[in-house]
Every structure is written in C-alpha cells, then in structure tokens.
Amino acid sequence: MNNATVAQSSQSLNAAIKEARLDSRAGKYLTFFLESEEYGVEILKVQEIIGRMSITPVPRTPEFIRGVINLRGKIHPLMDLKVKFGMEHTQITDETCIIVIKTSTIMMGILVDRVSEVANIAAGEIEDTPSFGAGIDTDYLLGVGKSGGKVRLLLDIEKVITAKDIISLKKATSQANDEK
C-alpha cells in the first residue's frame, strides 16, 4: 500500500466517521421552551412528560435543584433547567411541565416553561455548534437544529444534568438566533 492510498482511505474513513456522527444526532427530539428560546432533547432519553405536581424542596442542595417529586412511589430529583442555565427561577404556570429524563445512569425530572412538539430533525438540518468564544460552554450542545425556520439548541442532556455548576448558554442562544 503506498502513501497515496493510505491518505485516501484515511480520508474516506474520516468522512464516514463524520457521517456516522451526523447520523447519530439525527432523529426525533422533544422540543420545549425556556422563556422565548427553544431547545431539544433526544426523545429516546425522555421517559415521560408530566404536568405540575407538588414539589418538595430539599434544603442544602444546589440552587438548580428545585426539589424532589413522587413518581408512582419512587422519588426523583427535579432540576430547574433555567437556573442551571443561569436564568431566573421558573415561575410555575399552567403550561409548566416536568420532563422525566431516563438514561442508564440518570433518572431525573427537568422543569421547563412549556413543551412544544416532537420534531424530526434530519442529519442535514443539524449544524455543529459554532464556537461562541470564551465564557460560553458549548460542550453541553449536540449541535444546532435548523428546520422549518426554527433554530433549536439540541442539548446533550446527560452532560447538562451531571455538570456540577451553572452553565452559561444564554449568549449561545442569542447568537444562534442572530445567524438565522
């Protein structure tokens, strides 16, 4: 095998890997609103959506932990996603929802202002997260989904939940909207 074919095959391999990565991001997303911005989380990681229910606050926990809820006899923590993203506390209204996230390691509710829809986002509609400059965490984003004239930040929800601190995404959203 000469050098040229090696380079060629590694190139095509890279392309295939990229393709595969794009493909793994494509799929169905549950989209929801925090204030006016729309976000998406992979539908496979959502166990269910529940309306408002009584929340028991737990003292001495981080600010973004709103409390705990009773889901059919099991207790689960509830995260106020807006506080996690450095926004105001969520005001509970009739539209407020709890999205229950379930992965192999995580079982937790997240509090959002309003659930929007289940959107099918194709590989071609997902762009890599642009670099927003210093001070903005883009690690927590899978990418930006642009479909039907809407811009949605697709969250890597596992990373968001396991992060210890508040994540600043505020600027990321506005910049992504500007690009539109």
Binding site: S54, T56, V58, R60, G67, V68, N70, M107, I161
Partner: peptide, 27 residues
C-alpha cells in the same frame, strides 16, 4: 424510607425521603 434518587447525592441532614399520605414526598 426511600432514596432521593441516584443523581441527588448525599444531602447533609437528610436521611432520605418517604411518600406521605397525601402523595407528596416527605423528607
């Protein structure tokens, strides 16, 4: 007695939770 969930970690001063008669979680 029930755990407050895996992702909650240990909360100082709280041993766990319990489902109360009204369906709420009590600490």
């Amino acid at each position: 007695t029930k755990s407050l969930g895996n992702n909650m970690g240990k909360v100082p001063g709280i041993a766990g939770g319990a489902i109360m008669g009204d369906g709420r979680v009590g600490l």
